[in-house]
Computed example of a mutant assay.
Amino acid sequence: MDSANLESRIDSPNPAERMAAIAELRHCSPGVAVPLLKRRMCDKEFIIRSLVAGGLGRQNTESAFEALITLIEYENDPNVRAEAANSLAKFGECSLPFLLNLFEQDTHWLVRQSILAAVSAFDHSEILLQLCQWGIADDDIFVQQAALAYLADLSGTSSEEGALAVLLPLATVESADIRAQVARSLGYFEHPEAKAALAELQHDKDHYVIGAALERLLLV
């Protein structure tokens, strides 16, 4: 592939041309792709910066990893930060300290949901439990619900008791949305206390919660 041509296109004043060039970089070696991707980290178009973040995630090099950390640190658009977090997770367990710190510092719902999804793919139940606890304390209902949903992944792990310690008290909160998500997550646990709480939720005052409590039974 003509690297000189790619270099010219990636600096094109036409955003569509820049996007096409970034897409082609997936076929290039890291030695070619990473420096060109880094040139567009401050592009005025957020969609291009997002494509850069995705492109860096396909380059398994220290330089690409460091570029993603820099991008996250200085990026103002949450869509780009979320994409960068997803890409960072592709580098494996070395990304976990950075993702944990980002979740703690960045309260945007899209970024936090992206990190929850990324970390759930790792075999680190303690870290996922910590993120879920932070997420449940979030002011955003979507982050709260996502965190409650990922607690279901802790069934059968060393963090199962910790997950239940979070879920069980929330089975009686005022919010029907929260009770419903708690019911869905409890359905994945075989613990007697989880089954008892789920049985109570099947007689909830809200039909939406009852439906959520019965979902797992219908799938078994």
Rank of each mutant, 00 (worst) to 15 (best):
A163P: 02
L167H: 06
S175P: 08
V209Y: 01
D204F: 00
I141D: 00
L186T: 02
A149D: 15
R112L: 11
I136Q: 01
V220K: 15
L71P: 02
S95Q: 05
S63Y: 01
L167V: 06
L88S: 08
H124I: 10
G31D: 15
W109G: 00
R81N: 01
M1W: 11
E215I: 05
N60G: 08
Y188A: 14
S12W: 12
G92R: 15
A147H: 00
L148N: 02
V34I: 05
L6H: 02
V143T: 15
A152G: 10
I178N: 01
L131I: 08
P13T: 09
E160V: 03
A163S: 14
C132K: 11
A121Y: 15
L154E: 02
L164P: 05
S63C: 03
H203M: 05
P30R: 06
D138R: 13
V173A: 06
K205R: 09
L218A: 12
A67M: 05
W109H: 12
P30V: 02
R26W: 13
L56Q: 01
W134A: 04
G57L: 01
G135A: 07
A16V: 05
H124F: 10
L219H: 13
Q181L: 09
R179G: 01
F91E: 08
G156K: 12
D206W: 09
A171N: 11
L201W: 03
N5E: 10
A171E: 12
A67R: 00
G156L: 10
A146F: 08
E24C: 07
A117K: 14
L167Q: 01
E24H: 14
T70K: 08
V52I: 02
H203L: 05
L36I: 04
F142W: 14
Y150D: 06
F103E: 00
Q181T: 15
H207I: 04
S87F: 02
A118K: 09
G135S: 07
L214D: 07
G31L: 10
V173F: 11
I127A: 10
L198G: 03
T107R: 13
I47Q: 12
N76A: 13
A199R: 13
A194C: 07
F98E: 04
N14C: 07
I10D: 00
I69V: 13
P15L: 04
W134G: 06
E83P: 00
D153G: 05
R18W: 04
H27N: 11
D206L: 02
Q133C: 10
E104C: 05
L25T: 03
S125Y: 06
